[in-house]
Amino acid sequence: MTKTTKILKLIFFTTAIFWTIAPWSYLMASDSIGGVATIKNVSGDVLIERGNELITAFQGFLIQEKDILITGKDSSTGLIFKDNSVLSMGPESRLEIQNFAFEPALEKLSFVANMMQGTLTYLSGLITKLKPESVEFRTPSATIGIRGTHIAIAVEGEYSQDQQMGYMEPCQECLKKDS
């Protein structure tokens, strides 16, 4: 008797916990299903690093926040973001979509990307029209703020995984702690 009650209790609690967590994780997952950008063209080797996975990119592939796009030798790719901005990458490039939000009704508008290596071009879309200066590209040596335009960025030199992106944030933090 006591054994069955114990088992029943255990089943009850696991189910309860499951139903408390499940809807939330479902909501959070469905939020990112649509993706933030679509790959429009791929030439050569283009990979997407998503968490621990490496996925081969193809036309129509949906890019999500935090994805890292990697192009190989003699390779390139082009994509269109949800805000209609257009981005392309040249050979041997590495770009992380750190943050992308396009929800005009909620005034959530931002795009921050880390350009670790290689070349890219970017033609801005609705985010910069609705909220100028909310698009930012960070390289290991500089931060580029965009007020609605068309740009090209090249990052040359050795890529290292623990490279700091952008220029100031870590040091501003140090200053705050010191004072």
Binding site: T139, P140, S141, A142, I144, T149, H150, I151, A152, I153, A154, V155, E156, G157, E158, S160, Q163
Partner: peptide, 9 residues
């Protein structure tokens, strides 16, 4: 590590 950034408008 030499990291060279070039930006063109």
């Amino acid at each position: 590590t030499k990291i060279d950034t070039t930006v063109v408008l």
